[in-house]
Structure formats: C-alpha cells, structure tokens
Nucleic acid binder design. Structure first.
Lengths: 209, 209
DNA sequence: TTGACAGCCTACCGATCGTTCGGTAGGTAT
DNA sequence: ATACCTACCGAACGATCGGTAGGCTGTCAA
C-alpha cells in the first residue's frame, strides 16, 4: 500500500487555512500566516500545496465535500420533502454555530467568484445548490410544495440565514442584550416559517400562490 | 476664502476606490490600482487621503450617507408603514441594479468588520439598520404590523435580497436562461410577499403570529 | 544495504506593498 | 515681492508578498 502523508500535515494545513481565509480573505492571508499556525516554515506549506491558490482550492473543496455529504444524507433519509427542508434548516443553524468559518468562506467565495466568473473558474458549491433545488423540485412534482421558483427560494433561504449569522457579532454591539437574545432564539423559528409559509402546502391542500 | 479641493479629485478617488474595493476587497486593492484609474501617481492619492484605511473609510462613509438619506426620504414620506416597507423593497432592487458595487462593499465590510468588531471599530451602517427597524417598530406600535422581532425581520429581508443579487453572476452560469430570467422577475415579488406575509396585518385584521 | 521519496529546513529571488520625503508648478492673499 | 496654499510628482524606504533552489533527515520498500 502507498503510505503517503503519514504526518497529517496537509489536513492540518487545510484546517488552519480555512480559519485564516475565513477571517481575512484570500488576499488578506499570507502563506507565512498559515505556516506559523503549525510552526513550520513557509516553504514547507508550498511543499504540500504547490501554490497559495491550490491551498485555497483545497479549503473550498473540503468544505464543499462536507456540505454535499450532509445534504445528501438528508435527502436520502426517510423523511418526506417537507421534513427534509425542515432538517436542512436545522443543519444550517447547527453548522453556523459549530463551524462559523464555513459561512464566512462561502460568502467570501461568492463575492470573489463574481469578479472572475468570466474566467471559467470552477464553482465548488453548485452541486450543493443543485441538491437543494432538487428537494424543492421533488416536493413540487409530488404536489406537496407550492410552485415557487426552486433556485430563488433556496437563495432567499440561504441568504436570510447566512446574512443573519454573519451580522451577529456586529449587531450584538448595537442591540440591548435582551433584544439580541430574543433575536437569536427567533431566528430558527423564522426560517422554518419561511419553509412552511412559502413552500409547503398545508394538509388541507389549500394553496395561495 | 479658503479654496480647497477645486479639482474634485478626492470625490473621483472615492468613486474609483468604491468600484475597486467592491471588486477585490480591501487587501486585494492597492493604492496604485486606485491611482491608475485617474492616471495620477500613487503618492498623489495619499495626498488626498492620508492612508489606505482613510480612503476605505471615506468610501464606506459615502455609501452609508447615501443610504441613510434614501431611507429617511422614504420614512418621512406620506405613506403608511406598509407602504414605506414596499417602497424600501423597490429601493433595494433599484439600487442593486444601478449601483451593484454598493452591495458588494457592504457585504465585504460585514465580513471584515466581524473579525475586528472587538477593536471598537466604527460600524457605518448601524444608523441605516436603525432607521429600518424604526419603520417596523412604528408599524407595530400602531397595530399594523405583526409582533415579529424588528431587527430579525430586517436582517432576513436584507439577507434574502443581497445574497440573491450577489449570487446572480455565478448562478447565471448554472441555470438555463429561461429559468434564470424567471428567477429575476420573481425576486422582487417574493421580497414583497415576505413583507406582506410576515409583517403586514391584513385589512380584515387577522393575524397569525 | 541502498535508493527513492516525504517532510522540513535555510537562503534567496523579484515584485509589490503602504508610506515617507523633498521638491515643483500654479494659484491666491497680503 | 513675499508668503502660503493645494495639487501633484518621482524616488526611495523597509516590509512583506508568493515562489524557487538546494540541502538535510528519517522512513520504507526493494
């Protein structure tokens, strides 16, 4: 058997780089910064990843892979489409609490990818969006979801959530603590309501498109 | 009388810098880049703004001022609170179409401000959020709006819109044109529905909180 | 035992970064 | 004519950037 990478440094580099890129972006993060988190030389980083771009790509790929795995696990689960969407809202909130760096990286990539979208650059998160839109379409095909545009609904749902989580540290300073705590508590319920009101057709079959 | 800034270079610099910062962020934009857009030396940029940070601050302040002016104009208009919120949705969409750089800068600042929020750094857009939350609170005080958390609703509305507009260039490549066009058309209607469903209490007085 | 290679190092490269400096051109006020 | 101002410039500063070259060490299969 081939026994490459027996130190696990590459994986540690990806994890460190994720945190740094999330905090200061691609241009704001230097290879030296990444190397220092593992107390190794800068050129050692370039031994594992041939360039800064490749390291960044590895970070994106790693995040995208995890997200795809999570959403596929939900989609292949036993729930119906409405239940899957509710589980997805829970997944969103849990991930933002446990892995806040992910949200930052995704948003940064969304911003940066905009500028170079014409350079035929790979977009790591399109399979993720495809899976989500797939759930919506599936529910619509079975007559359980309202005929809203799948991609639009997903973008609005993701937008409401990510924008909220990104704003939290800033808004925390602007709001009295009591209001802030209530806002956090209400957030997940509000996302769920977004699913119920705008997507799921009630058990009585009524629909107001 | 003192005759400062008779060339208008400072204003031109702010406008150029806004575009560049929007495209590649603070770290991704150099003073040299800004100077070249006006065909002047980079030291001349530093004559108008003592540092890169100060130039960036001027860009943010300029955007924040315009946005505050716009939202105050709506708020002091003749409409009731529901009409003001509808006008605000229209303002959002129009601005994103006419001044797309603004959305990018605001989102980037939201991301970057997160990291240094503990350094007591000024947050230029809090008065803007305050004005918006004020409209919601005012409508609630008059019994016209549902008792949703004002800040939460505003963040969800802004998030849904900004995330959507930011994603447009990327999503355009992933979607068949016919779906893409429909998505654009439905976006404003969907935001308006967000206001109607989750905020405004219908004329019959019914309310489902 | 030996050779291949992974991992990590020091040393160094050219380029670019933000910033500082001294100086010039042209206008205005005294 | 003197003094002072804004606007702008080119040169240079030290620091840092991403990346390269080459050498040392330890592991492991042949």
């Amino acid at each position: 058997m081939e026994e490459k990478n027996h130190t696990g440094t590459s994986e540690k580099l990806v994890q460190s780089a994720e945190k740094l890129f999330a905090g200061k972006g691609f241009y704001g993060t230097s290879i030296r910064d990444v190397a220092e988190t593992l107390s190794i030389a800068k050129s050692s980083v370039l031994h594992h990843f041939a360039s800064k771009e490749k390291l960044y790509a590895a970070v994106l790929q790693n995040i995208a892979d995890e997200m795809i795995r999570e959403i596929r696990a939900i989609r292949q689960g036993p729930e119906d489409e409405a239940g899957q969407m509710r589980s997805f809202v829970g997944l969103l909130c849990d991930n933002s609490r446990d892995r806040p760096d992910r949200d930052l990286i995704i948003l940064r990539e969304l911003l940066d990818n905009r500028a170079r979208v014409d350079t035929a650059r790979k977009w790591y998160f399109s399979p993720y969006l495809e899976e989500l839109a797939g759930i919506v379409r599936s529910g619509q095909d079975k007559g359980r979801f309202k005929p809203i545009h799948p991609g639009l609904f997903i973008l609005h749902l993701l937008g409401a959530h990510h924008y909220f989580t990104i704003s939290l540290p800033t808004v925390r300073q602007l709001l009295p603590p009591v209001f802030f705590d209530r806002m956090i508590r209400d957030h997940r319920a509000e996302l769920t309501r977004m699913v119920e009101d705008r997507l799921v057709i009630g058990p009585d079959g009524r629909d107001n498109p």
